Simulated assay, not measured.
Amino acid sequence: MRNLLTILLCSTLISCASTQKDQNTDPTVYQLDQVDAPTKWIIHISPIYPKKAAEEKLEGWIKMSAVITENGKVTEIQVLDSQPKGVFEKEAKRAFGKWVYKPALLNGKTVKVYREETLEFKI
């Protein structure tokens, strides 16, 4: 019985601690014009030109959006537009997901921001 009470108490404490941690994280995603210092990429991974597109000498671009976290990581990547459609999206998202940014600052604290990037594919 005593072991059962100890287990219940420990799981309650762990649950409370994880809930409190989640409550301290600011869920707000700011626009770049709302912050004091915007993000700036510090690691930029170039996409690999898709083999089929290179063979066909296709060029194009892709516009994406993402959330840049307080740690400078790229998350929640969405394709907004591309030309030609269905050719460069997969590789552009893979490369963009590996970029690292200097985080945005608001009132001296790092914050999440919404950012758009356009990648061009030229031979």
Rank of each mutant, 00 (worst) to 15 (best):
P27Q: 08
F96T: 01
Q78Y: 05
I77H: 04
F121I: 00
S15K: 03
R2E: 14
K90D: 11
R2M: 11
D81M: 08
S15W: 09
W41S: 15
D22L: 14
S46L: 15
E70S: 11
V111F: 04
Y114G: 05
T75G: 04
P47R: 05
D33Y: 10
H44K: 15
V67E: 08
K98D: 12
H44E: 15
S65E: 12
T28V: 08
F121A: 01
E76I: 00
I45C: 11
Y49C: 04
T6P: 03
T39G: 07
E55S: 14
E55N: 14
E59D: 07
D33E: 14
K90A: 13
M1L: 12
K63T: 11
A53K: 03
D33N: 15
G108I: 07
F88M: 03
T118M: 11
I77F: 04
E56L: 14
N24F: 06
E117D: 09
L80P: 06
I68A: 01
T75N: 10
V67N: 13
K112G: 01
T39K: 04
N71P: 03
V35I: 00
L105E: 15
P47L: 06
E120T: 09
K93V: 08
I45F: 10
E117R: 13
A92C: 05
S46A: 12
G97L: 04
K57Y: 08
I42A: 12
V113C: 01
E76L: 11
T118S: 08
D22K: 15
N24G: 04
I14D: 00
Q83F: 12
A95Q: 05
V100I: 11
T110L: 02
L106T: 02
